[in-house]
Design a protein around this nucleic acid. Structure first.
Lengths: 142, 142
DNA sequence: TTAAGTGCAAAATCTTTGCAAATGT
DNA sequence: ACATTTGCAAAGATTTTGCACTTAA
């Protein structure tokens, strides 16, 4: 049941070559408990990986369904590892996100998004739910 | 109860001068039943209003609580008129949004976002709910 | 060996800033 | 008359594209 989460397997499973750069990006994204913004990744990896390469790797990961991209309130891309249920054509990212307005981090909460009946004619394929406020860390500091 | 919705009153009520450019932007935003993206506004108003002025007007409107800004999946800003209940410091935008993946339009649905209990330590101030799929128009065409 | 991936340079966008001229009250 | 607002020019930032060099399989 525990599917291989190490970079090597993830890359192999998606027909992506195992390169130093790709491994590093995966490491950084799976690092903490929150999603990582692209600017953060650039800051962290700027010396090791070219900016353009980072764009390409992130796009590839998103297309393959390895990570999911979450836009924060500023239109900045954030990335988190997809659950193993995700595939390139069937993205399951239907949990609640929490976007801290202080530290700007995005957390993937283990909460399912409630169903909502759409009006006549509107057919929802996927939904997204994001809560904005203070995360558990920033709450204490304030 | 029906508060004045004409541009003149809206602007006056928020201490903004009544200029040709501001009126046009308000007209375009309140035009249809869906939110308008910034690129659409630029295309529509490009001959009448400078790009930079448009940025400034949209920012002012958002700060004053005249419009609300909705980021679509591409990180593009979309704007819709706020309900009269919005003020600069108390934004009420807690209805469901529908983002059509075909025509890219965003619709403000008259549906309230269900409450979700946050995990220990996380305090949500506002929430956003967006459904992605085909809108009533695009559903028919496909 | 060779197709895929990377880095660099440069183009194309998008967004912000500064300032002089124009405009609304 | 005067503070705001606008347009233009230009700086800054972000994202994309092309191509030669490198690297994993």
């Amino acid at each position: 049941m525990i599917m291989a989460l190490d970079p090597g397997n993830i890359l192999k499973a998606h027909d992506l070559k195992h390169t130093r750069q790709r491994v590093r990006v995966l490491e950084e994204i799976s690092h903490g408990q929150s999603a990582v913004s692209q600017p953060e990744l650039e800051k962290k990896l700027g010396k090791e990986i070219d900016r353009v390469t980072l764009y390409r790797i992130l796009n590839a990961y998103e297309e393959k369904g390895i990570v999911h991209k979450i836009m924060d309130a500023n239109g900045t891309a954030n990335y988190a590892i997809c659950s193993s249920a995700c595939t390139a054509h069937n993205h399951h990212d239907e949990h609640v996100h929490f976007n801290c307005t202080n530290c700007n981090k995005i957390f993937c909460l283990e909460l399912t998004i409630p169903e909502i009946k759409m009006p006549e004619g509107f057919k929802a394929k996927t939904v997204s739910f994001t809560a904005y406020g203070l995360c558990n860390k920033c709450n204490k500091e304030k």
